[in-house]
Amino acid sequence: MKRLLNLLVVLAAALAVAGCNEPKKPEPKQQPQVVKKESTVVVPPAVKGKWKAVKIEITDKISKKSTVLTVGIGSKEKIPGSDLTIEVENFLPHFVMEGTTLTSESNDLKNPAVQMRISQGGKEIYKGWLFKLFPTIHAFQHPQYGFALVGYIPA
Protein backbone atom coordinates (compact mmCIF):
# COMPACT_ATOMS: atom_id res chain seq x y z
CA MET A 1 0.00 0.00 0.00
CA LYS A 2 2.84 2.33 0.85
CA ARG A 3 4.34 1.58 -2.52
CA LEU A 4 1.10 2.47 -4.27
CA LEU A 5 0.88 5.70 -2.31
CA ASN A 6 4.47 6.65 -3.30
CA LEU A 7 3.67 5.88 -6.93
CA LEU A 8 0.58 8.11 -6.82
CA VAL A 9 2.59 10.97 -5.24
CA VAL A 10 5.27 10.67 -7.94
CA LEU A 11 2.61 10.52 -10.67
CA ALA A 12 0.78 13.56 -9.25
CA ALA A 13 4.05 15.52 -9.03
CA ALA A 14 4.91 14.61 -12.62
CA LEU A 15 1.47 15.73 -13.80
CA ALA A 16 1.76 18.99 -11.86
CA VAL A 17 5.17 19.76 -13.37
CA ALA A 18 3.98 18.84 -16.87
CA GLY A 19 0.93 21.07 -16.43
CA CYS A 20 3.10 24.06 -15.56
CA ASN A 21 5.02 23.89 -18.81
CA GLU A 22 2.94 25.29 -21.63
CA PRO A 23 3.62 23.65 -24.92
CA LYS A 24 5.83 25.80 -27.12
CA LYS A 25 4.03 27.47 -29.96
CA PRO A 26 5.77 27.06 -33.27
CA GLU A 27 7.46 30.24 -34.39
CA PRO A 28 5.83 31.79 -37.43
CA LYS A 29 7.73 31.07 -40.62
CA GLN A 30 9.40 34.05 -42.18
CA GLN A 31 8.12 34.74 -45.68
CA PRO A 32 11.00 35.07 -48.10
CA GLN A 33 11.56 38.63 -49.24
CA VAL A 34 10.78 38.97 -52.92
CA VAL A 35 12.93 41.62 -54.48
CA LYS A 36 11.51 42.70 -57.81
CA LYS A 37 14.32 43.73 -60.05
CA GLU A 38 13.59 46.54 -62.45
CA SER A 39 14.09 45.55 -66.05
CA THR A 40 16.74 47.31 -68.06
CA VAL A 41 16.03 48.25 -71.67
CA VAL A 42 19.02 48.09 -73.99
CA VAL A 43 18.60 49.41 -77.51
CA PRO A 44 21.51 47.94 -79.49
CA PRO A 45 23.53 50.07 -81.92
CA ALA A 46 22.05 48.15 -84.89
CA VAL A 47 18.59 49.45 -83.85
CA LYS A 48 19.29 52.86 -82.27
CA GLY A 49 18.32 55.67 -84.60
CA LYS A 50 16.92 53.33 -87.26
CA TRP A 51 13.26 53.91 -86.33
CA LYS A 52 11.51 57.28 -86.24
CA ALA A 53 7.99 56.52 -84.99
CA VAL A 54 5.34 53.89 -84.30
CA LYS A 55 1.68 53.74 -85.22
CA ILE A 56 -0.72 52.94 -82.40
CA GLU A 57 -4.35 52.16 -83.07
CA ILE A 58 -6.66 53.61 -80.45
CA THR A 59 -10.14 52.12 -80.31
CA ASP A 60 -12.94 53.91 -78.50
CA LYS A 61 -14.89 51.01 -76.99
CA ILE A 62 -18.00 53.15 -76.56
CA SER A 63 -18.31 54.65 -80.05
CA LYS A 64 -16.63 51.60 -81.68
CA LYS A 65 -14.41 53.96 -83.70
CA SER A 66 -10.68 53.53 -84.22
CA THR A 67 -7.97 55.99 -85.11
CA VAL A 68 -4.27 55.48 -85.76
CA LEU A 69 -1.93 57.84 -83.98
CA THR A 70 1.68 58.21 -85.13
CA VAL A 71 3.98 58.87 -82.16
CA GLY A 72 7.68 59.61 -82.54
CA ILE A 73 10.09 57.54 -80.49
CA GLY A 74 10.94 59.65 -77.45
CA SER A 75 7.87 61.83 -78.04
CA LYS A 76 4.41 62.41 -76.57
CA GLU A 77 1.08 62.80 -78.35
CA LYS A 78 -2.32 63.71 -76.95
CA ILE A 79 -5.14 61.40 -77.98
CA PRO A 80 -7.67 63.62 -79.76
CA GLY A 81 -10.96 64.05 -77.91
CA SER A 82 -9.63 62.69 -74.60
CA ASP A 83 -7.48 63.67 -71.63
CA LEU A 84 -5.03 60.85 -72.45
CA THR A 85 -1.42 61.28 -73.61
CA ILE A 86 0.81 58.55 -75.06
CA GLU A 87 4.57 58.74 -74.65
CA VAL A 88 6.73 56.31 -76.65
CA GLU A 89 9.97 55.50 -74.85
CA ASN A 90 11.57 52.71 -76.92
CA PHE A 91 10.91 50.55 -79.96
CA LEU A 92 12.49 47.11 -80.28
CA PRO A 93 11.89 45.41 -83.67
CA HIS A 94 13.03 41.96 -82.47
CA PHE A 95 12.09 42.05 -78.77
CA VAL A 96 13.82 39.50 -76.54
CA MET A 97 14.15 39.20 -72.79
CA GLU A 98 17.42 37.98 -71.32
CA GLY A 99 16.95 37.82 -67.55
CA THR A 100 16.04 41.36 -66.54
CA THR A 101 17.42 42.86 -69.76
CA LEU A 102 14.98 43.74 -72.53
CA THR A 103 16.62 44.23 -75.91
CA SER A 104 16.35 43.60 -79.65
CA GLU A 105 18.13 40.62 -81.14
CA SER A 106 18.26 42.33 -84.55
CA ASN A 107 16.79 45.19 -86.55
CA ASP A 108 14.42 42.76 -88.33
CA LEU A 109 10.69 43.03 -87.57
CA LYS A 110 10.45 39.55 -85.97
CA ASN A 111 8.78 40.52 -82.66
CA PRO A 112 8.05 44.28 -82.70
CA ALA A 113 7.34 45.89 -79.34
CA VAL A 114 6.99 49.45 -78.11
CA GLN A 115 7.60 50.64 -74.55
CA MET A 116 5.17 53.39 -73.67
CA ARG A 117 3.52 55.40 -70.94
CA ILE A 118 -0.07 56.54 -70.88
CA SER A 119 -1.11 59.51 -68.76
CA GLN A 120 -4.61 60.69 -67.96
CA GLY A 121 -5.02 64.28 -66.85
CA GLY A 122 -1.25 64.47 -66.29
CA LYS A 123 -1.14 61.37 -64.06
CA GLU A 124 0.61 58.22 -65.30
CA ILE A 125 -1.85 55.32 -65.47
CA TYR A 126 0.20 52.80 -67.45
CA LYS A 127 3.83 52.01 -68.13
CA GLY A 128 4.54 48.94 -70.18
CA TRP A 129 4.83 47.30 -73.57
CA LEU A 130 2.62 46.76 -76.60
CA PHE A 131 3.49 43.77 -78.77
CA LYS A 132 2.49 43.59 -82.44
CA LEU A 133 2.38 39.78 -82.57
CA PHE A 134 0.89 39.30 -79.09
CA PRO A 135 -1.56 42.17 -78.53
CA THR A 136 -3.16 40.62 -75.43
CA ILE A 137 0.07 39.98 -73.50
CA HIS A 138 0.36 42.58 -70.73
CA ALA A 139 -2.36 44.54 -72.50
CA PHE A 140 -3.34 47.79 -70.85
CA GLN A 141 -6.96 47.75 -69.73
CA HIS A 142 -8.79 51.06 -69.93
CA PRO A 143 -12.58 51.36 -69.51
CA GLN A 144 -12.99 53.38 -72.73
CA TYR A 145 -9.92 52.87 -74.92
CA GLY A 146 -8.01 49.94 -76.35
CA PHE A 147 -4.48 50.19 -77.76
CA ALA A 148 -2.62 48.16 -80.39
CA LEU A 149 0.75 48.49 -82.08
CA VAL A 150 -0.04 48.49 -85.82
CA GLY A 151 2.96 49.99 -87.60
CA TYR A 152 6.45 51.48 -87.52
CA ILE A 153 8.20 54.19 -89.50
CA PRO A 154 11.91 53.80 -90.29
CA ALA A 155 14.22 56.79 -89.87
Rank of each mutant, 00 (worst) to 15 (best):
G99A: 05
Q31H: 08
Q30Y: 05
I56N: 09
L7S: 09
G74E: 07
A46W: 00
D83S: 14
A18T: 14
V114L: 00
A139D: 05
V41W: 02
G49P: 03
M97Y: 02
E105A: 15
Q33L: 12
M116L: 15
A155C: 03
E98K: 15
S75Y: 04
F95V: 02
K110F: 03
A155W: 00
G49Y: 04
L11H: 02
K78N: 12
K76C: 09
P93L: 04
L102A: 04
V43C: 08
K48V: 15
S104W: 06
V43P: 09
K65M: 09
N90F: 02
N90A: 08
H94L: 10
I79D: 05
G19N: 11
K110A: 09
Q144I: 03
I79M: 10
K24R: 12
A16M: 12
L69Q: 11
L130A: 00
V150M: 04
S106E: 05
N111R: 08
P26D: 08
L92S: 12
A14K: 06
K48H: 08
M1I: 15
V34W: 00
D108L: 10
V43M: 06
Q31R: 12
T100W: 00
E27S: 14
S39P: 13
V17Q: 10
E89M: 12
L15T: 05
D60P: 05
Q120R: 10
A53P: 15
A18Y: 05
T59H: 06
V47W: 01
A46Q: 11
F95L: 07
T67V: 13
M1E: 10
I62S: 07
A12I: 15
L92A: 11
G72Q: 02
N107Y: 06
G146T: 06
